[in-house]
Design a binder for these strands. Sequence first.
DNA 1: ATAATTGCAAACACTTTGCATTTAT
DNA 2: ATAAATGCAAAGTGTTTGCAATTAT
Lengths: 136, 136
Amino acid sequence: MEDLQKILEAKGLKNTRQRKLVFSVLKAAEGPLSAEEIYIQLQGEKINLSTVYRILEIFLQKEIVLKTNISDQKSTYEINHSEHRHYLICIKCKKVTPISGCPLRAYETYLTQKNQYIILEHKLEIMGICPDCQNK
Amino acid sequence: MEDLQKILEAKGLKNTRQRKLVFSVLKAAEGPLSAEEIYIQLQGEKINLSTVYRILEIFLQKEIVLKTNISDQKSTYEINHSEHRHYLICIKCKKVTPISGCPLRAYETYLTQKNQYIILEHKLEIMGICPDCQNK
DNA sequence: ATAATTGCAAACACTTTGCATTTAT
DNA sequence: ATAAATGCAAAGTGTTTGCAATTAT
């Protein structure tokens, strides 16, 4: 957790109990989590759901987390390992599996040239049926 | 619009005035539209926003449209040209530009083998700054 | 000490739903 | 004639906000 302290300090943010909590939940998570999922994992701790939202918002601004809209309504958040990641999403059990590597670097270069776009980032989500659900 | 009539008939759905309207707006659109954007384009016509939502929902089930969450909150919809598409999204003006071709077919094959996943579909969104906004 | 952060409750934005009425078949 | 679709208003989610109280520096 020393990570966080330095990061926050460097960005002029206070190292509060609630921020540590949210950060630790995200750090331990396998995949992206919604604000509510984080909040639920913190039952017993004194923290408000709106505080979770505010923390995620400021973590996002400071690029400590990434935000995605994998599923329909809820946004989800994950630690921003600068090396970026994509996920396989099982349409049956909703399990989210990280995949290593990104197939799009070369393609981005091509697109930049063709469309005169300055490309900053991309989101890729691949949906399918996971091995477990195939055997049901 | 004869398209729609046949499609609906084949799926046991009624060919209503409202469904024709929503379909025609989507057909004319350059990129994905939110329910509200569709509704706004139909001002003057007698149609309710909740009807737009219901129509989009049933079009989605019947695979007449595709649904995405490009931006934060609102879902957007587009005609399901079976040949699938991806978009460049300008982070400044929010303009959505379709790109031709999909760079992921080969990669999907590779993933299937590596992860034992049955891959059904994917979403790819590429964010950047469009040529117009670069000159501002 | 003081500026930033939090909790709480209330507001907001997007979407869904129940039910009576209308419409396409 | 009848089952499906719509309009309307009300309820449901997920998220944001104003303000007073608390907390990290």
